[in-house]
Simulated assay, not measured.
Amino acid sequence: MTTMTTPQTSPAFSVCVYCGSKPGNKPEFAQIAVQVGTWIGTHGGQLVYGGGRNGLMGLVAEATMAAGGTVVGIIPTALVEKEWAHHGCTELHVVDTMHERKRLMADKADAFLALPGGIGTFEELFEVWTWRQLGYHDKPVGILNSLGYYDGLMGFIGQVVQDGFMADWQTELVTLGTEPEALLQALVQKAGFSPGAKVELL
């Protein structure tokens, strides 16, 4: 099932954002989500995300729409029934399974970006990273490491390389950054798109 709240326009680019359904314990996490959504919206882009209204997920969606961007939410029926769906999305796709959700999110994205989050965010990040490694897609994947949130993870990945279970070229498939705007700009350009002219908010 798909619902739409506004007429569909053609976005300049589409970024799939993975992030927490909780806000986290630091106010900076919320600020990061708002920065990401605002950049996408003010540059004529489209956010693709998991369709939730809670936590960082809800914040990035609201910020994108407030800045004039479109938002495509994709959520399984089970989570809609728990009243977690954001019905204000430009498009809200309700699907049967998590696998269908992730496939549709990947299909609709030009690039992927992981913000702070929990095991769901990690699982989605590692899946699109693995898909890129295997050649199932060639879309850029980014990790926003603001506040050093992913320092521990990247340290562990370094250990995995050192122990011979990964190679350097696999780590190079992911772009790491600490500044939301610079990282988004890099991902969109790597995807072969030019962000639209920035629209100043009134």
Results as ranks from 00 to 15, higher is better:
L147Q: 14
L59M: 15
T121R: 03
L144W: 05
G88T: 05
L201C: 03
A33Y: 05
G158D: 15
K198S: 11
K22T: 14
G158C: 02
Y136D: 09
A167Q: 13
G135R: 04
A114W: 01
L56A: 07
V17E: 04
A182G: 04
G155N: 14
G37L: 07
Q31A: 15
A66V: 01
P7Y: 00
K22M: 09
H86Q: 08
V48S: 10
D110L: 03
T178L: 00
E123D: 15
E123T: 12
V128T: 10
E124K: 06
T3C: 03
G120Q: 08
V95S: 09
G58A: 07
L134I: 06
P11R: 02
H137D: 09
P7E: 12
P76W: 02
E179V: 12
L147A: 12
Q8W: 06
M57E: 06
T42F: 00
G177W: 00
C19R: 04
Y49A: 13
L134R: 09
Q185C: 08
C89V: 03
P11W: 01
G192W: 01
M65H: 04
M57H: 03
V48Y: 05
H137A: 12
W169N: 13
S146H: 13
L92Y: 06
A167N: 10
G158Q: 11
V36S: 10
I157N: 00
V94A: 08
M1P: 13
E83G: 01
T64E: 05
G68M: 05
F126G: 10
T175W: 00
N54W: 01
G44A: 09
P116I: 01
G41C: 12
A66K: 11
V95E: 07
K102N: 11
V141D: 02
A167C: 04
Q8A: 14
L59Q: 14
T130E: 02
R101C: 07
M4E: 11
H137S: 12
S194N: 11
V71Q: 02
L153R: 04
T9L: 11
V71S: 15
F13M: 08
S21L: 04
G24F: 06
T5Q: 13
G69A: 05
D163A: 13
N54T: 14
M166N: 09
L113V: 10
Y150D: 01
Q185H: 10
E100H: 13
Q185N: 14
L201P: 00
D163I: 00
I74S: 09
T171R: 14
L173G: 07
M4F: 09
G88C: 05
G192M: 04
L153G: 09
E179D: 15
G177H: 02
I157V: 15
L153D: 03
V80G: 09
G69V: 03
D151T: 11
N54F: 07
V17C: 06
A186G: 00
E81N: 13
E28N: 06
V48M: 08
D110C: 08
H93K: 09
G52N: 09
G68Y: 00
L104P: 07
A66Q: 12
V36F: 04
M105R: 08
D96C: 05
P76Y: 03
V128G: 08
G45P: 12
W131A: 10
T70W: 00
P195Y: 00
N25P: 06
E28C: 03
A191H: 04
G177R: 01
